[in-house]
Each structure stands twice: as C-alpha cells, then as structure tokens.
C-alpha cells in the first residue's frame, strides 16, 4: 500500500525554561509521520507532553528543535504572512474544553465565520450566512443556533460549534486535543461518530490526542504511546492492543477498566518500573515488526523481536 505522508515530524523538541537553570523537556525528540486520510492517536498520562506536541505541530509554540513538515514544507521556518495564512487554513485545532475555547461575547455565527472573514472566503454577507448555516447543519445543529451565544449551549453542542469553526476554512488536517474528555458518556459517542462521519465525507486527517485508551483505539488507525516527552511505542491500533511490546504500554493497557465484569474479574494489572531498562545504552526507536516501533536498547530489541514473532 502506498501511503502519502501529510505530516512529517522529525526529532521535535519543545523545552520550557522554568528557571535560570531548570528546563522542562516536555517533548524530547519525537519522530513520526502522519499519513493522508488516517487518524493518528496520541496517548499517554497527564504531563507526558502529548498536548504540547499537538500545540507545537500547529505552531502555537515555537519548537526548540526539530522539524514539522506539512506537505513537505517545514511549518516552523520563518515565512511571509501570505504563506502563513495559507498554512493556517490547512491545519486546524479542536480544543479540550468547550467552555473555555469559545469567546463568550461572540455570537455563534461570528465564532464560526471568523476564519471565513480572515481568509476572505465569503464574498457577500449572504454567502457568509449561508456557509455558517451549512456548517451548523453539518455538525448536527440548526441555523437558528447561529444568533445565540455560547452560554446557551450544552457541552456537547459547544464542542460541535468548535468543530464547525475548525471546518469553516476547509482544512485537510485537524488536531483534536482531548475533544471528548469534558463530555458525558452518551454525548462522547455523538461527537466521535460526528468526527468519523466528517472524516469520511471531507477526506480529513486527524491527530487525536487523548488519555481514554478505549476511545482512542476505536477512532485511530495508528497509535503512538508517549512517556515523559518521548514516544515509547508506535503501531497499528489493533496491533498495539494485541502485541504491546514496551513495558509502559503494557502497564497502560492493563490499567484500563473495560465495561465488562467478566473481563474485569480476570484483569491483572502490570506495573511499569522504569529502572528495569539498561541505562548504559541510549535506547533507540526500532521496528520490531511490520510498522511496529518500540523504543529499546539493542538487547531489548532482540528480545522484543523474538517475542513479536512468537505471538
């Protein structure tokens, strides 16, 4: 299968200075590709750097080091205004908290149309209105909602407005940073179904950042597991769940409770002990199976390889 790379992340680093001598290495040498039309899931515990990664890719932060190539162009290179504007159209973001990410003083119509105005995508007032109404319908709201303010909506509806705003400029790549964690269970399913539908219809590529592993598996084609600013494992969603290699991935997977009492009675949790690794050698990201990458030392690599085949 020939897959086209849409986003190429090379040795991305994002370090924050927290004092004169202390640096937080939130993202520390990340390398992965996102292919056209896929959903790439990024999981990890709070503080592992997954949100920082998303924000650095879309240039909300300037990278300390490394490249993010979007359609072959590095987004962190200094560009002229026109190029940046074009780039911003291609890449959009959906945020975690639908209460904090919508301006409470703006009407829904203006929130959604902000991108249209900036990029001059609506020639007339009527066209602008029409486009907003279409977008509202696409995300399952109706046109009467355009004249209301964000506080008049529930959490799930607000997240739909956030999605409509992201879609307004016809992006090809959307970064969704925990788009469902602030929502109720029944509403989560609505939003996930909507995201999937939009992906089919508009040929979108997603970077889906979350800590809810069962939802990530459901929505993602490939999944990357992050731990302390580094990717420790990257594989196809099914492969990752069937063949977790890295001990951290194993501990993470074994910690998720599933809505199945029989499974829960037999679930054995594995704990991750970082000291089990051989620290004399710098671990590298190696391919232990087809498209299955694990951060490991040479010795561990041999071990994983054997284990992978045996499964």
């Amino acid at each position: 299968m020939s897959r086209e790379k849409l986003v190429e992340i090379k040795n991305l680093k994002q370090h924050f200075k927290t004092g004169r001598h202390s640096v937080v290495k939130a993202v520390d040498g990340l390398t992965f590709d996102i292919y056209k039309g896929e959903t790439f899931g990024l999981v990890g515990e709070s503080g592992c750097g997954k949100s920082t990664t998303g924000r650095t890719i879309i240039r909300l932060y300037d990278a300390t080091e490394g490249e993010v190539n979007f359609n072959g162009v590095n987004v962190h290179d200094k560009k002229n205004k026109a190029d940046l504007k074009q780039f911003n159209r291609e890449m959009q973001m959906i945020f975690q908290d639908p209460y904090a990410s919508l301006n409470p003083r703006m009407k829904v119509e203006d929130i959604i149309a902000e991108g249209l105005d900036i990029h001059g995508l609506a020639k007339t007032k009527e066209a602008r209105k029409k486009r907003v109404h279409d977008l509202l319908e696409t995300v399952g709201l109706n046109k009467e909602h355009a004249n209301r303010y964000p506080h008049e909506f529930s959490g799930g509806q607000r997240q739909r407005i956030g999605i409509a705003r992201a879609l307004a400029v016809d992006p090809s790549f959307i970064i969704a940073d925990e788009p469902i964690s602030a929502l109720d269970v029944s509403i989560q399913a609505q939003v996930v179904n909507l995201l999937k539908k939009l992906q089919r219809e508009n040929d979108l590529t997603y970077l889906f950042i979350a800590h809810d592993l069962s939802m990530v598996k459901y929505i993602s084609d490939r999944i990357g597991v992050m731990y302390f600013g580094k990717l420790v494992e990257l594989a196809d969603a099914d492969d990752l769940y069937k063949n977790p290699m890295h001990p951290y991935t194993k501990s993470l997977l074994s910690a998720i409770p599933l809505p199945d009492p029989d499974y829960e009675r037999n679930r054995v949790r594995e704990e991750y002990d970082p000291s089990q690794h051989d620290t004399s050698e710098e671990p590298e990201f190696c391919e232990v199976g087809p498209d299955h990458w694990v951060l490991c030392t040479t010795k561990e690599f041999e071990h994983y390889k054997k284990e992978y085949v045996s499964v």
Partner: peptide, 9 residues
C-alpha cells in the same frame, strides 16, 4: 445507550 456508547475492543 450508555453501554452502546462505549466502544468495546
């Protein structure tokens, strides 16, 4: 609805 809205493996 509640059970169905959670993905199973």
């Amino acid at each position: 609805g509640l059970l169905g809205s959670m993905p199973s493996l």
